[in-house]
Design a protein around this nucleic acid. Structure first.
Lengths: 106, 106
DNA sequence: TATAGTACTTGACATTACCAAGTAGTTGGT
DNA sequence: ACCAACTACTTGGTAATGTCAAGTACTATA
């Protein structure tokens, strides 16, 4: 898969995943991987960035299956940002799709 | 518009534009701008890169409206690459779209 | 106690888009 | 003849984000 396509979109996928329910990093890697290939070294820095930007709050919970998990919870600002990002993505994808379709019809 | 979304997609838009007919850089900037915001400093280096990779061949033609224009023509390799890139984009956009839709239905 | 699976972190790197500035040819008005 | 505006291309520095690789550490299980 073209690695460049992911730029910016991973952020939306992560935000949308966490919107459904609080998740921890490792879980997110697996969840996001169902949609697009991604590895830990991409997700963890992204989570840190989104947390620094106050779109996520975090808390720790112990696990019976390994070390404690850091859970991410979407803030109000995060919800707004997610909504905006989704709208932008939709518009962008639509525009590109329409362009490709239009060219094809020539 | 989220600048990150464009990564990789501009390449597809440029390839697809030139597939229709040979075009010169300045013309492409205007053509691509109809689909997504973009400026010269993005398009010209992209054209150079795609030419280095043998997806484009170039030739010069004089213009009555300014300096000579460097036209870009898609090579056979360019056509194949374009086809592949389009397929990858379609798949990617579909996957993301399906994910967002699925989440929404929960 | 060794191994596998879970969980997170970090640093060096690659790619690609943006911004700004510069060079240069052509046309049209004064 | 000169200047402004438009056409056309180039380049250098920067920003943003994803990849790779390696490392740390906890838990369960054979």
């Amino acid at each position: 898969m073209n690695a460049q396509f992911k730029k910016g979109v991973l952020e939306l996928i992560v935000l949308e995943s966490v919107r459904q329910k609080d998740m921890y990093g490792y879980e997110l890697v697996e969840e996001v991987s169902k949609v697009v290939d991604v590895n830990e070294g991409t997700i963890y820095p992204l989570l840190k960035r989104l947390t620094n930007e106050r779109y996520f709050e975090t808390y720790l919970r112990e696990s019976t299956e390994g070390p404690p998990r850091k859970y991410y919870h979407l803030t109000v600002a995060g919800i707004l940002y997610r909504d905006q990002l989704e709208a932008e993505w939709m518009e962008f994808a639509d525009r590109v799709g329409a362009f490709l379709k239009e060219q094809k019809e020539r």
